[in-house]
Write a protein that binds this DNA or RNA. Structure first.
Lengths: 192, 192
DNA sequence: TGAACTTTTTTACAACGTGTTGAATAATTA
DNA sequence: TAATTATTCAACACGTTGTAAAAAAGTTCA
């Protein structure tokens, strides 16, 4: 995805890590996680198996690091959406930027969010969305409806992530902009 | 959970299968799926490792069978809720029965739905909920809002399952009845 | 360019998990 | 009790894991 790295780093490391990551994404499209071995990853990445261990402790560790990178990317995007606009419509813009980012990296997100093989990624995104919603509804929550705030937050954040997942699984039949609008509407009437 | 078996079956088989299932649920509370081996399951279940293979092809196969049983249980419950009431309020009752069932088997559901270790179970429940909602909104969908029907279904079903998951993770701080009411309210305003 | 440094490869190893066998033992059924 | 069926035991070949040491290849910088 993006850099995250300003210090000079050996191009061999960059190359190897990219090869390994691509190989994993590749394999995740084809088979369940329990069929994916370091052997297969190395083979697919055209690197030596030992090299894998020079970069990651094991497959689990690798996925955690990738999920961390994803989370940083998404947080950056959402932060800059908040900065750009200060005229009320931030959450609509945030959603739109997020969906655009996901669409741009569709191959990646379809695998890590669209399949249920890598729950860490979904978990990470859910957490980010929950926090964003929590922050965003700090004042604006209408308790008058008789709905518990935490239930509304659970409801809204799962609805968002679930819709994104379904959208990915169906090969993104709507543009990010259109889906963002739909979601904003649904979200307004429902959650808060 | 329930029987699913009316024909006489060797009590040793019942005992062994129950021991194995309990062992898996036990282990899933303690460690990630990739740390769980047939060895460990057999050890925890106090059976011989070979016996495991007399009942299941592998751990994956075992989880699929357990998810299938869960799905059958839930479908039974939702069916009988539909039968019982014909006076409009079926979806509220269905939700209530479902949540009661989950609460009764809290230990089981907290593991298979509450942790992200067994996506098959969540997947199965999502499918059931999606189908129920799809059926239920066949006529009553208000297109006037400008919201796509499929988006609304994605949104509503993920919201439901996500809220249930969060409720389990937080050790069910609301009664099934209360949560069902909350969900019905949120669902009404939002999805359809 | 050449020398110092870092990364990758090669080969090898022990430990462990898998899935399957055939024969024994134990429990259930009738 | 006898016949049947489930479980255990011991053992096997095979693949995966994570680590090690040394050789080879690629990068950096004077």
């Amino acid at each position: 995805m993006t850099d995250h790295e300003n210090t000079r780093v050996d191009p061999r490391i960059l190359r190897t890590r990219q090869l390994i990551k691509d190989a994993l994404i590749d394999l995740l499209q084809e088979m369940e996680l329990n069929k994916i071995t370091v052997n297969r990853i190395a083979e697919r990445a055209t690197i030596n198996r030992v090299t894998f261990y020079l970069h990651y402790r094991d497959i689990q560790d690798m996925m955690e690091k990738m999920a961390q990178e994803m989370a940083e990317d998404i947080e950056d995007i959402m932060r800059s959406a908040t900065d750009k606009e200060s005229t009320g419509e931030t959450d609509s813009l945030m959603l739109e930027s997020l969906l655009e980012h996901i669409a741009e990296n569709g191959k990646f997100y379809k695998v890590v969010l669209g399949t249920r093989r890598t729950p860490i990624f979904t978990e990470r995104l859910l957490k980010i969305l929950t926090e964003a919603i929590t922050k965003r509804t700090e004042n604006s929550f209408r308790a008058a409806t008789g709905i518990q705030r935490d239930v509304a937050i659970w409801y809204g954040s799962s609805a968002l992530i679930g819709t994104i997942v379904a959208w990915l699984r169906n090969d993104m039949p709507y543009t990010p902009q259109y889906l963002a609008k739909q979601l904003t509407m649904l979200f307004r009437i429902g959650g808060k």
